[in-house]
Design a protein around this nucleic acid. Structure first.
Ligand SMILES: [Mn+2]
Ligand SMILES: [Mn+2]
Ligand SMILES: [Zn+2]
Ligand SMILES: [Zn+2]
Lengths: 146, 146
DNA sequence: ATATAAATTGCGACTCAATCTCAATATATG
DNA sequence: CATATATTGAGATTGAGTCGCAATTTATAT
């Protein structure tokens, strides 16, 4: 399996785009982070690497990473898009607790079998899977009243 | 099964809120519509019923309907939240085509079995399910190059 | 190295969905 | 009717995300 940098470089080349210093910084942060993050967090981290980094560049790089199959929009939280790197990671379900905000992840493998069959049936070629379940985690579910 | 109006009235009562003329208009539109819609569309339709209807009221009523279990945020499209009434409707997967924008729906019943088991295992009480698959529909998938 | 063409960048203005403020109005209850 | 409380519309405000543009960087060719 190619590493994420190779994937990105090849993606950029195929589009006639350049693997620049700023894009490298962003890529490294994205694959160094192992939680969900939003654009602002990514910007803050990138700013620590170099002062020559603007929000615009961050916002412009995110869709490139998504189109390269490296990043994916995840759970939308408090009116912000959040993201997570997906390259080399198994697909998973997000269980989002509406009380404490926790996001639990569980494997999606079992569901994938059913899903692939369904995709074949309707002739759909799937790129991204977003499976979010909203409710209460085990901790918050037992509280109920306060 | 209670009708949606009863559900809403009881929900409002339980909160010490009132079943007003505007809320009734919005509820009726929401359950008269059978496609996904956004707040602006709902506002436009509500305006046809009465001029005494503001965007603020529409935006304020939507979360009430969601909390009552009648409405659910659906696929987010062109930077807008879209919604669909869910009360009395089976859960379904959304297959979103990135080329033509089509949203195909298929039943989620088969997946639900696996999901319920998983929910039990991690002690999560699920309220909403959002299962979106992004990719290309059968029509757009065969185009590829242009 | 120098020249040329093309892509990238930061800055800050801009967009626009969604939220908030607040005074006027509607509603429920007794 | 009187009182208390919830609702409402208008328009201001917020803020995530986008865009235009001139300056800069990068790749490639001479
Ligand atoms: Mn995740
Ligand atoms: Mn639907
Ligand atoms: Zn929780
Ligand atoms: Zn399509």
């Amino acid at each position: 399996m190619k590493d994420h940098q190779t994937v990105f470089v090849e993606f950029l080349q195929g589009r006639g785009l350049k693997y620049t210093r700023n894009r490298k910084i962003i890529l490294d942060i994205v694959f160094g982070l192992h939680e969900h993050f939003d654009a602002e967090q990514l910007y803050d981290l990138a700013r620590k690497e170099t002062r020559a980094m603007s929000r615009a560049t961050v916002y412009r790089t995110i869709p490139l990473l998504c189109e390269a199959g490296l990043l994916q929009q995840s759970v939308r939280s408090s009116a912000r898009d959040t993201f997570e790197h997906i390259y080399g990671h198994p697909k998973h379900i997000h269980w989002v607790c509406t009380r404490c905000g926790a996001v639990i992840e569980t494997d999606l493998a079992e569901v994938m079998a059913v899903l692939k069959q369904e995709a074949k049936r309707i002739g759909f070629s799937a790129d991204e899977i977003k499976f979010n379940v909203v409710g209460k985690c085990w901790k918050c579910g037992s509280i109920e009243n306060e």
